[in-house]
Amino acid sequence: MAVRAPYRSLRGISAVAALLALGAVGCSDVSEAVDGAKDGAKKVARQRSVFSLDVGDCYNPNGKAEGTAYVVEIVPCDEAHEGQVVGEFALDEGKEYPGDDGVSAVADERCPVEAQKYAPDTWALPKGAALFYYTPTRESWATGDRAVSCTYTAQKSKLSGSLDTAKSLKPEQATYLKGSNALYEALWANQPAKDTVEDDLAGYKAQAKAVAAALDAHVEGLGGIEGTEVGKLRATLTKAAGNWKKAANAADVDAFYIAYDPAFTGIAPNKSVAARKELGLATTVPADEAEVWAG
């Protein structure tokens, strides 16, 4: 966001009358010009300040998807669009602007959580959709702006339809996704500070402890869901939880590695495909997740 901007007026409609007054153009030219002017007026009428975005709004940015924005074009979600607001939250009130990096750090942490409330099954997201957010700038912070709007934005083509799937989930689907999302959140949110276990054994053990706890909760949730494949996944994850606990309690680096390898592969996304199919959820592993496990 930048400085607070007012809603755009409908002055574009006046272009229609001006074009109709021109007698030197042919009928087809006038018709095309009028249609173009109407489309332009329609777009202007849909303009909304980025300060008034609501969860569920589908929109097209004015210009590039990234960068400082004043207004966006709000469109019906059944029309092709570039983005949809899938979450929002307010930053803590403070006298001083925390800086671009400070704001982004909070948004990086909070937006995935807020987005999952709206679209819990990340596997079902359209290909190319990525999580972005509108945040306050130093200038807008001075006017009292503290809002962060989390959006899924199409990086290449367009989005079609609303991404709001939370309301349509069956209880067993919601239970599965809650546990699965919490598991992967525990894994990625507790990344150790160093790249190697040798340099940060304590950090890797702490991550293992967090993952083991999330797995225990996920396994417990799966216990209340019927299904052959769900039962098989529950057994797989129970075994994985045991390995994560061994890693968390490893006495040294060698002991950690012995437990970590089977622990990590035990929660690989492809382990859950059959259970997801049984539950009626998306079954295609997102490319970014598949790449991580393949690496």
Rank of each mutant, 00 (worst) to 15 (best):
Q116C: 12
L169F: 05
V44W: 15
D100E: 12
A18H: 13
D200A: 09
L91I: 08
T228F: 09
A5Y: 13
K43M: 08
S31I: 10
L22K: 11
L281F: 01
S9T: 14
S9I: 03
R234D: 05
T238C: 00
V292A: 13
R46V: 00
E185I: 00
V285N: 04
G26L: 05
Y59P: 00
E185W: 07
A263F: 05
P269M: 06
K178R: 12
G99Q: 01
I13T: 14
Y152A: 05
K271E: 14
Y184I: 07
A2H: 12
P126V: 01
N62Q: 14
A182F: 06
E220L: 02
A174V: 04
G94S: 15
S14L: 09
G94N: 12
R48V: 11
G221A: 03
E172T: 13
C150S: 03
A241R: 08
A166D: 08
A206G: 11
K64S: 15
Y97K: 08
N249E: 14
Y204C: 04
G223Q: 00
A217T: 06
A248Q: 10
A130Y: 03
G295A: 13
W244G: 01
A174Q: 08
D164M: 04
L159D: 05
V103N: 07
K117G: 15
S157T: 13
K178P: 04
C150Q: 06
V113R: 14
S104D: 10
T143S: 15
A250C: 07
R234A: 06
R146C: 07
D78K: 08
I225M: 03
S272F: 02
I225C: 02
V292P: 03
I13P: 00
D57Y: 00
Y134D: 10
